[in-house]
Nucleic acid binder design. Sequence first.
DNA 1: TTTCAGTTAAGAAGGTTGTCTATTACAGTC
DNA 2: GACTGTAATAGACAACCTTCTTAACTGAAA
Lengths: 401, 401
Amino acid sequence: MPRTSRPGTPALLRVLNDRTALGLLLENGPMTRNELARLSGLSKPTAAEMIRRLEEAELIEVSGESSSGRGPAAVLYSVLTDRAIGVAIDVQPLGITSTVVDATGAAHPVVFEAAEEAPGERDAATDLARAIDAACAAASRDPETVTVVCVGIQGSVEPRTDDLVFTDELPGWPRHEVTETLAKALGVEVLVENDANLVAIAERREGAGVDASTFALLWMGNGLGLALDFGGTVHHGAAGGAGEIGYIGAPIDAVDYDPEARLIDDLVTTRTIERLAGRHGIEAETLADLLEAISADPARLAILDELAPRVGLVVMPALAVVDPERIILHGPIGIAFGAELAGRVEAWLAEHSRWSTPVLNPTITQTPVLHGARHVLIDAVRQALVEAVAHLPSVGDDPPE
Amino acid sequence: MPRTSRPGTPALLRVLNDRTALGLLLENGPMTRNELARLSGLSKPTAAEMIRRLEEAELIEVSGESSSGRGPAAVLYSVLTDRAIGVAIDVQPLGITSTVVDATGAAHPVVFEAAEEAPGERDAATDLARAIDAACAAASRDPETVTVVCVGIQGSVEPRTDDLVFTDELPGWPRHEVTETLAKALGVEVLVENDANLVAIAERREGAGVDASTFALLWMGNGLGLALDFGGTVHHGAAGGAGEIGYIGAPIDAVDYDPEARLIDDLVTTRTIERLAGRHGIEAETLADLLEAISADPARLAILDELAPRVGLVVMPALAVVDPERIILHGPIGIAFGAELAGRVEAWLAEHSRWSTPVLNPTITQTPVLHGARHVLIDAVRQALVEAVAHLPSVGDDPPE
DNA sequence: TTTCAGTTAAGAAGGTTGTCTATTACAGTC
DNA sequence: GACTGTAATAGACAACCTTCTTAACTGAAA
């Protein structure tokens, strides 16, 4: 339905244009008045006026001079990023990774703290506070300026009840009123998101999903998870339970591959990899070591031939329900086997299903969860800035003396 | 991501406000200048100016006088609906149903033409042209004013290739370049949409889905189909193959209910209903008669007890993949068994799955496909009107003499 | 001397407030 | 029951505010 757009007074124009200006400054980095005029499509005087308002509101500042060509040097303006920053946090059983994020999306150091380093009882708020401080210290930022954090976890938060769901391992985390409890304890806005979903956001923004209308990301690690991206938005489901495909009953055809499998979850597990590798005499303590050993072994391709149909059976329900444009195989297993596995799954699907969906290997293999959280936070911090523009004073309004 | 809004000149305000005015007139019916001012939040002179522009562009016209209360009678304006209309068409094996749709969404007669009435070779364009003429004749509208038709079919059109997919029965329809061929032959814009999807649109707009964030609609008739609504938008999938859940392998648990089932499609078919009814001595020629007979029989509840788990197994993959807020059981079977079946399926899911999703019976049981197509067309016709507003002349521009 | 950054001035487009007139309904009053 | 004054409303008009634009101007750097 054509949403009846809100009516417009001249004041609306100002807000609209100030917002445009701030957005352009955020996306394109430092700019001169004239560059802003050209990029916004507005006239020079208008661009100057926007700059004046944004500078007065202390949303932007002079950041240098451009000295290209003849004529006087133009003043460069850039967005002030030291007023509100975010911290991206990846909470995993092995430890917590974190990094500072500002509105420009500039890179900041990534900090890892192993789980053992936290002494005594585990407590979610304490863990997160420590991660925030560590990230800020590494980036030389004041922790007081943190306004929002995005936390990736192995599980989901029920959007309607704020309860923790589909989680086995999260020691010290509250089960109810999760974001509310954490936000109160930390004094900042808290966004909790499933880690596979964050990885999907990362692949959408700077990876294998950039130009996709829609894609599904299958996370294969110690468990299975599916993240769905519809046109750039991650789908959570009504109760945060979207993508929990592991609980689907295994299809009858699966007995050919694994006679014991009752659920889809049973088709691709750590145990599965161990068994397939064991037949070729490959063994290791941890999943990571095992995957590395397989990748280095000539029997690799034979193992992938056996693994691919199982992966195909896992994603089949997602194909039939939402028909994504492409599938990305991610997680430790997807990363370890890359294109060799993706190609085999794609071929199996083309032969054994009615869909011929491209299957891709992941492109973001280093701290993918943190990458996704970074994008969430860039959006959040920018959003806050852009909303501040709506309350900027008018021309005539003098500041109180 | 905060889409950088386009910059604004005063001219943008005019377009914005004209659009608002037209939208309000469409949604609220005939209005006076002052009512428009109040509803739009704009001043009286501005409202008068908008009216002047829209009337001059022949998008609205004087349609009467309001005589409520004191003061002079106010002139009522309403949108001109005789310039561009749409025709909603439901193509089913038994025949073709059609009706006229205008921007106001006012009711128009519904016309049904049985399949046998069309002599000789079936041809899609001819069938549709006949349906358009019949609908226009019944509504006393000029077929020349039809600019767009929305056709519901048992199948889908691949959005990227314009091919007909997932269709068995559609005699006389082209298999490739479907909308393009039809649009050329009919000389109007053609929107082809899966019938289950149209029913979902109808339930979203005026039925069991009005206030849902997201819902899944399971169509149970001669075959199975699933329509997905995400926040008011029907999801088609990259290749128009979303919701084709019938091709998913039947889960291992299904053997308890039907040892022969290989695919989910096999769990709820006409044959299934016949078998379940047959055990209670109920028989009939057609599915419609059979459903009617069951509904009138005391053994009804026993049959539903057996049917419900099968339906539960069918929707389970959709729950795990997208976790909809609610499920609507539609189609001949869903309509016939209503709340009695829905309640049983809901109870079964609560017990046998990790989801406790509400299951609802359909509320739009009369010509639901046509209802959905109506909404699509109301949007399309309004969209065209609203876009015309963008090209309205300014104050100073005199018409060429 | 050319080029470009930045400013200033005039004015166009759109919206607002406030006022005024004409018109009608309602409420008294004869 | 007819007449008249009053209140409320529709619609128009005038004066003014805000925002953007065009065009000219100033001054600095190559």
